[in-house]
Design a protein around this nucleic acid. Structure first.
Length: 734
DNA sequence: GCGGGTCAGAGGTAT
DNA sequence: ACCTCTGACCCGCGC
C-alpha cells in the first residue's frame, strides 16, 4: 500500500515525490502485504512465511539499509528535474493568474486551448478507426479460420500505441473498450443531469399551476407526461455524432478487447463499443449495404453477427451450450409479450439462415436480471455460436415462428453457471457465509456498514493489524485547518446551479447527479461541495461524498499484492467509494519521522498534480473552476516549491482506503474535494468509481508514479515490478 | 414495496 | 415507412 500522490503527470514532480518521500517505498512491492501488517511483519513466524513466498522475497530484495536516508538527498538528475519543474509550475501559475485577471477573455482562451486538446484526441481516434477499417479482414467460413484470425488480431492488439506526453503508452484493446465505456458513462451522466433538471422544472411548474389555478382541472400537462427521455439513447446519439463509437462497422466474430464473459450493464453499452449495433433489436445483422465492401464480396447478405437472448420470446429455449433462438417478428411488443402474427423469413431471420449456409459465427449475449447493475440487468458475452439449422413451426401462441439452433463453438472459455445465470452467488449473504473470515469488522463499528477481512492465503490466516481504524481524517498538532468557507444560501437541497454559490464554484454546475444516491458526472480539477456554512441540508446532492460508506466492502488477502479491497455490491461509475483518511500532517514533519518507520501509506495532497493527472476518467475540458476562484491565491502564494505541503498519513491510522492497491488500469480515480473550507492544499481526497464495477472485482486506483522517476542514492533509476495484472500493465510501478 | 402495464425512443433496413 | 423491444416511469394491488 504505497500511496503516492495520485497521478503525477509531471515527471519532475513525481521525481521529487518519489525521490524524497517515497524513497523507502522502493523495496516494498506495491503495497505488499508486508507493510499492511506491521505486527505480522515483525513476527518471526510470519517473516518465514514471506520467505516461502518467493515473489515477496524478491520484491524485498532491493531494500538496502542506506536507501531511505540517502534518497532524501535528491540526485543531480532529480535536482535538474526539480528546477525544470519549478519553472514549469511558475509559468503555469502565471498563466492561471493571468486568466484570473482578464476574466471573460481568459476563459475564452482557456476553453480554446482545451478544445485544441480535444481535437488532438479526436484525430487519434480517427486514425485508429481508419486503421481498423483498412485492416485486412479475413473471412471466416470455418471455425478454425476464425480462431487463427483471432490470434492474428490478438497479436496486433498490443502493437498500437499512443504517444501521450512523451511517454509511450500502450493502449490495449481492453483499454480502448474501457475508455469507450467511460466516455459513454460520462455522456450518460451528463444527460441524466439534464434530465433531472428538466424533471425538477416540470415538477415545479406543476406545483405552480396547481397553486395558481386549482379550478383549471384540465390544465394541459404538456411535457409533464413521460419524463423519461432515455439518457442512454441520447448518449449514444452523441457518441455517433462525435464518431466515438469504438467499432462503427459491423464485424463478424470476436470484437477486440471484449472477452467471453464480458459484462455489459445495458444494451446501450453494446452499441457504444460496436458489439451489437442496435439498442433494441435482438438480432444484429449486416444488411445489403455490406455487399459493396470488397472484403465481404463473397457473402450473401443479410448476415447475422450478434444476437441477444433476453428470454423475452416465449419460444426461446436456452441450455447454455445449445440454444434454440426464436426469430424476430410477429411479436406483440408491448403488453403480454406474446406472438400475435406469423413470422416471415426476412431481415434478422434471413440473416441467421444465411449464417448456416455460409458458416458464419454469431456472437451470443445473454441478458440476466441482476441487482448488480444500474438498470437491474446485466448482459454477458457468452462467446461465438454456430448456427446449426433452422425450421419453422407453430409456436406456443399458435403462430408460425422461425427457430434457429445454435451451438457454442468449442475451445472457448468455459461457460460457468455464474455467467449463464448471472447472480451474486459468490457474494456472501451473511457473516457466517464468509470464507476465510479473519476479522468481522475492521472498522470496529465506526462505519455504518461493517468491513470484514478475509484471508485464504496465509496459514494460519492473519488479520490486518498494526493500524487504528478511523473513519474521518485526524489533524495533527502542527496543522491548522483553515476557517470554514462561506457557503450557499439554498434551502433544503441545492437545485439551481445559477443561484447556488457552491454550484457557481464548480463552473455553474453541480458535479453530481442525484441518481443512485449521487454520482460524480466526471473527474474535475476539484469538486466544491456544500459545507457547514451552507443553507442546504444533509440530503443535498452536492454533499455526495460526505455520507460515508455506501457499499459493502471487504478487505481480502491477495496472492501477490498483500491486502486488497473489493465490494460485494455493484458500484456504478461515478459513485463515491471512500475517502482516503489518516493523519493530516505537514510533509516536512513526515520527512523526519516516517522513513525510519517504513511508512508506505502517505498520500500527498496536491491538487495540481491530481488535476493534471491521467487515468481515471477524462477530466472536464471546459472546467472553469480553477480560473474563477479565489482559492488560487491561497494555494498559490509565494512559496512556490512544487512539493506538496500536506500529506495524509495512513500508516498508523486510517480507513479502508489504505488497503486499496495500485493498478495500471484502475477502476477508481482520485478526486480532490473541498467542503468545509476552500484551501486546495488541504483538500479531502476521495476515491470514486471510474467504471461500473461488478461485485468482487478488486478496487484499485493509479498510484501515479511516472516510470523512471525514482532514483536510488547512486542516482540510478530504480524500478519496481507491478503486479496489477492489467492488460496494459506497465510491468513496473516505477 | 412489488409487479404488470405503458410508451417513447432512434438508427438501421428496405421500400 | 417500418421494425425492433429496452428502460424507466406509472399505477394499482396486496401486504
Amino acid at each position: 500500500m504505497v500511496v503516492q500522490p495520485p497521478k503525477c503527470v509531471s515527471p519532475i514532480q513525481s521525481a521529487i515525490v518519489t525521490g524524497e518521500l517515497k524513497a523507502e517505498v522502493a523495496d516494498d512491492s506495491q503495497h505488499l502485504m508486508v507493510s499492511t501488517d506491521c505486527k505480522a511483519e515483525k513476527s518471526p513466524r510470519i517473516v518465514s512465511k514471506y520467505g516461502r513466498k518467493g515473489i515477496k522475497t524478491e520484491q524485498k530484495q532491493p531494500k538496502e539499509p542506506e536507501e531511505s536516508s540517502m534518497q532524501r538527498r535528491a540526485s543531480a538528475r532529480i535536482q535538474a528535474k526539480q528546477k525544470a519543474d519549478k519553472e514549469l509550475l511558475v509559468r503555469r501559475r502565471v498563466e492561471l493568474l493571468d486568466e484570473q485577471d482578464d476574466g471573460g477573455n481568459e476563459t475564452k482562451s482557456r476553453s480554446k486551448r482545451s478544445r485544441v486538446t480535444e481535437n488532438v484526441v479526436k484525430e487519434e481516434v480517427v486514425e485508429e478507426e481508419k486503421r481498423d477499417i483498412t485492416a485486412p479482414k479475413s473471412k471466416l467460413d470455418e471455425s478454425t479460420k476464425l480462431e487463427s484470425k483471432a490470434k492474428v488480431k490478438g497479436s496486433e492488439e498490443n502493437v498500437d500505441s499512443k504517444n501521450g506526453g512523451g511517454n509511450l503508452v500502450e493502449k490495449s484493446d481492453t483499454l480502448k473498450v474501457k475508455q469507450t465505456l467511460r466516455l459513454f458513462n460520462k455522456h450518460y451522466l451528463h444527460l441524466v443531469q439534464e434530465e433531472e433538471q428538466r424533471c425538477r422544472k416540470v415538477e415545479a411548474d406543476r406545483k405552480v399551476s396547481k397553486k395558481g389555478s386549482k379550478s383549471k382541472k384540465g390544465a394541459p400537462p404538456e411535457d409533464i407526461k413521460n419524463p423519461s427521455k432515455r439518457p442512454d439513447l441520447k448518449a449514444l446519439s452523441k457518441m455517433m455524432e462525435n464518431n466515438e463509437i469504438l467499432y462503427p462497422e459491423k464485424r463478424i466474430g470476436n470484437i477486440p478487447g471484449i472477452k467471453v464473459g464480458h459484462q455489459f450493464y445495458s444494451r446501450a453499452e453494446m452499441v457504444a463499443v460496436g458489439f451489437h449495433s442496435h439498442w433494441l433489436n435482438g438480432i444484429d445483422y449486416m444488411g445489403q449495404s455490406y455487399r459493396k465492401g470488397l472484403e465481404h464480396s463473397k457473402y450473401t447478405f443479410p448476415l447475422a453477427v450478434a444476437i441477444v437472448l433476453s428470454g423475452m420470446y416465449e419460444d426461446d429455449l436456452d441450455n447454455a451450450e445449445d440454444v434454440v433462438y426464436t426469430g424476430q417478428g410477429g411479436h406483440n411488443l408491448t403488453g403480454d409479450k406474446r406472438q400475435i402474427r406469423d413470422q416471415v423469413l426476412e431481415r434478422g431471420n434471413l440473416a441467421l439462415k444465411n449464417c448456416i449456409e455460409q458458416r458464419v459465427l454469431v456472437r451470443v449475449v445473454r441478458g440476466h436480471e441482476s441487482a448488480s447493475s444500474y438498470t437491474g440487468k446485466v448482459y454477458t458475452y457468452d462467446g461465438l455460436y454456430k448456427v446449426v439449422n433452422y425450421w419453422a413451426e407453430k409456436g406456443i401462441s399458435g403462430f408460425t415462428v422461425y427457430k434457429f439452433r445454435l451451438r457454442r463453438l468449442e475451445g472457448q472459455p468455459t461457460l460457468t453457471t455464474n455467467q449463464v445465470y448471472f447472480t451474486n452467488e459468490r457474494v456472501p449473504q451473511s457473516a457466517a457465509e464468509i470464507r476465510g473470515l479473519v476479522c468481522e469488522d475492521i472498522t470496529a463499528g465506526q462505519e455504518d456498514i461493517p468491513i470484514p477481512a478475509t484471508n485464504l492465503f496465509d496459514d494460519p490466516p492473519v488479520a490486518p493489524t498494526g493500524f487504528t481504524y478511523c473513519k474521518t481524517i485526524q489533524v495533527s498538532k502542527n496543522v491548522k485547518l483553515p476557517a470554514e468557507g462561506t457557503g450557499c444560501n439554498c434551502k433544503g437541497v441545492c437545485v439551481d446551479p445559477r443561484s447556488c454559490a457552491c454550484a457557481l464554484r464548480n463552473g455553474s454546475d453541480f458535479p453530481y447527479v442525484s441518481r443512485d444516491g449521487g454520482r460524480l458526472i466526471e473527474a474535475k480539477d476539484v469538486v466544491f461541495e456544500c459545507g457547514p456554512n451552507c443553507g442546504c441540508g444533509p440530503g443535498c446532492v452536492n454533499r455526495t461524498s460526505q455520507r460515508g460508506l455506501r457499499y459493502r466492502l471487504e478487505v481480502f488477502r491477495t496472492a501477490k499484492k498483500g491486502w486488497g479491497v473489493r465490494s460485494w455490491d455493484f458500484i456504478p461509475s461515478g459513485a463515491p467509494v471512500c475517502e482516503y483518511t489518516g493523519i493530516l500532517t505537514r510533509a516536512d514533519d513526515l520527512d523526519r519521522l516516517d522513513y525510519a518507520n517504513d511508512n508506505n501509506y502517505i498520500f500527498e495532497i496536491d491538487c495540481l498534480q491530481t488535476m493534471k493527472g491521467v487515468g481515471g476518467r477524462e477530466r472536464r475540458s471546459q472546467d472553469a473552476s480553477l480560473a474563477d476562484i479565489d482559492l488560487l491565491d491561497k494555494s498559490d502564494d509565494q512559496n512556490s516549491e512544487s512539493a506538496p505541503e500536506f500529506c495524509i498519513d495512513a500508516g498508523s491510522t486510517g480507513n479502508v482506503s489504505r488497503f486499496i492497491n495500485h493498478s495500471c488500469e484502475p477502476n477508481l480515480f482520485v478526486q480532490c474535494v473541498l467542503s468545509s473550507h476552500h484551501d486546495l492544499k488541504l483538500a479531502r481526497v476521495m476515491l470514486f468509481a471510474a467504471d461500473n464495477i461488478p461485485p468482487l472485482q478488486e478496487l484499485t486506483y493509479d498510484y501515479g508514479y511516472a516510470l523512471d522517476s525514482v532514483c536510488g542514492p547512486d542516482g540510478k533509476i530504480k524500478q519496481m515490478h507491478c503486479f496489477c495484472g492489467a492488460a496494459g500493465c506497465k510491468k513496473r510501478l516505477f
